[in-house]
Structure formats: C-alpha cells, structure tokens
C-alpha cells in the first residue's frame, strides 16, 4: 500500500469520527516497531492540527503467533490505562472494516522520545533519568491495579506454562542451544510456584514502548503482549540486560536501580515487591527475548516479511546467552 493511499484512507476515516476534520497531512510510516505498522499523521482541524498515530496489523501478517492480545484488546487496555491515570495516549478511533485500513486503532500522538540511546545519553533527559526507575515502579503499580472485571479477554499465564512454552519453542528450532537448555533447567529448578496475586501484566514494559520527555514517562505503548499473570513478571522484564542499552550497571532500563523501581512500586501499590520473583522473571525474560530473536530469524526465512531487520535480530540471540551466563554461571 503506498503512502498516498494510506493518507487518503486516513482522511476519509477521520472525516467520519472527528467532527471538523478537514483532511490529513504529514502521513509517514515510522521506523521501529518490528511486528506492526505504525504511522504518524496530522488531522487538519479548524481548532489546530491534531497529532495522531495509526497502529495497524499489515494484511496477511500475524504478529507474535498465539501470544498477541490483538489490536482490539490493545485499544481497550490503552483506554482503561488512560482513564486510570496511567500515562497513556487517548484512543481516538478503533478501525472498522469501512476504514479499509486493516485492523488496528488510531490514538493521540504524545510528544517525546522512545529511542533508548537518546533517553539514556542526551542532555535533554538528564533531569528525567534519575526519576525514571521510581516512576516505572509507580506506573506498573497502576497497571497491575486495574480492575480485573473491566479487562478484555486475555491469555492467562504462569511460570510453569511459560517454561513449557519456551521449551517447546527451543526444541523446535532444529538448532542446538546448550545455554538456552541450561537456562530452562535453572528456571524449572527455581520456579517460585503460582503467584498468589494475579493481575493484568503489560508484557512488554521496556524501552521503545515508553515515551519519555524531560519531565519523565509520558506514555506507555504497545500492549500487544498483555496477559493475566504474576505482576512481578513486568518488573523482571524491564531489568533484562538487553533493555539497558549499554548502561549495564543500572539494571532498570539502563537508568535506575532495583531499589528505586521497588520503592516506586511499593509506595504506589502498598504491596511488597518479591525481589526473588523479580530475579526469576529477569532470567525468564532474558531467555524469552533470546527465543524471540530466534523466532524473528525463522519468520525471516519462512514468512512473508523477508526483511534484513528480522534476519539481524536473529543474531541478537547470542546477547541473551552471555547475559544468561552472567546471571547463572558468573565467572569469578
């Protein structure tokens, strides 16, 4: 689909749900976001342009098979989070068949930065960086506190099911992975058992999915992997070394400490963090990211999306192997 036709379709769509909309300008496909298409555009309006983002599934292409919550569920979750005071873009429109844009939704464009290296290194964010870990804890407390009754239908996961799923995927690679097998053994031996608390889990709370401004986190994006499960999973995932982007001594996203993350979470939720569970989920998350990297490579080979980016992400699986060894078999 060409850029021009997406802009035309967006203009036609906006006219139907945005009173006063007078066309669409600056439609551009954004880089990043490997599994779904993201477009930025402005809706022309007498009261001033409205910055908007389209998120849609390209036709004929499934996201993470079996794991994705679905774009409709994502739209609902984003709106719930927004209404509960979690920094989130407002959902403007959920795509309908008449829009002829595939499946997905349109949301408010939130100004700020998602590129990790900029957030971690640019002067603009120097004031925000020391606050981010605590803020992430507070935001996760808000997400985990969303009322279960209001949530859309979501997968329910626990550690044992996750381990079994990873085992199946790794055994299906047809490529030997001794370090992954070592990690699976460790996870089996250290599974803390089902969590007493089961909540909404964002599932992909990390750099790239957080819009940050000089004032801190402005929006949480990408609910594609949302599910029900152990809330400590989200705290472990943001500590996975791959999301530290080189600042490896600051475990939370390369900007903060475990203590700051936990303090923010506990202050906002009144619920104690189980640090051992978080560690367990950090190991699980590291392995999970390694498996996702291999999955990208397989989809590069088999799928319709035969892109270099996917192929190259396959070569990132070894980064998780060194991180697993650093976690499970540190050298003296």
């Amino acid at each position: 689909m060409s850029t021009a036709s997406v802009a035309e379709l967006l203009a036609r769509s906006a006219a139907a749900w945005c009173p006063g909309a007078a066309g669409v300008t600056s439609a551009v496909r954004l880089s990043g976001g490997a599994s779904q298409e993201t477009w930025s555009f402005d809706i022309m309006h007498p009261d001033g342009a409205i910055g908007a983002i389209l998120r849609r599934a390209p036709s004929g292409y499934g996201a993470a098979p079996g794991r994705a919550a679905g774009l409709d569920a994502e739209a609902v979750l984003m709106q719930l989070a927004h209404d509960a005071g979690v920094p989130s873009p407002k959902v403007l429109h959920v795509l309908k068949p008449d829009d002829d844009l595939g499946t997905g939704f349109i949301m408010q464009r939130v100004a700020g930065e998602t590129i990790p290296r900029k957030i971690l290194r640019d002067d603009e964010f120097a004031g925000a960086r020391p606050k981010l870990a605590r803020q992430c804890g507070e935001i996760l407390a808000g997400i985990h506190g969303l009322s279960a009754a209001s949530l859309p239908q979501l997968r329910r996961m626990n550690a044992a099911a996750e381990i079994a799923e990873l085992q199946r995927e790794i055994d299906g690679f047809g490529w030997p992975r001794p370090v992954f097998q070592l990690a699976l053994r460790w996870l089996r031996g250290n599974d803390p058992g089902p969590s007493e608390r089961v909540t909404l889990v964002h599932g992909d709370f990390r750099h790239g999915n957080l819009i940050v401004g000089p004032d801190g986190v402005r929006a949480v994006l990408d609910w594609e992997l949302a599910h029900l499960g152990d809330p400590m999973e989200d705290l472990g995932w943001i500590c996975v070394n791959s999301w530290r982007f080189g600042v490896i001594d600051k475990p939370v996203g390369g900007f903060g400490t475990y203590e700051e993350l936990f303090a923010g979470y506990e202050a906002a939720s009144g619920i104690a963090v189980d640090a051992q569970r978080v560690k367990f989920w950090e190991v699980m998350g590291t392995l999970r990211w390694g498996v996702m990297c291999v999955g990208m490579m397989q989809r590069f080979r088999l799928g319709p999306d035969h892109s270099m980016e996917r192929a190259m992400i396959g070569r990132r699986s070894s980064e998780t192997e060194i991180d697993l060894l650093r976690l499970l078999a540190p050298r003296g």
Binding site: V179, F245, G246, V247, R315, S318, E319, E321, I322
Partner: peptide
C-alpha cells in the same frame, strides 16, 4: 558464547 559475541555484537555491553 564469547566467540559468538565476537561475531554477532562485539560492542555489546556485557
């Protein structure tokens, strides 16, 4: 593993 990283990502922090 170190031999893999030397090819895949010699600038990786770990």
């Amino acid at each position: 593993t170190l031999a893999k990283l030397a090819v895949d990502q010699p600038n990786y922090g770990s």
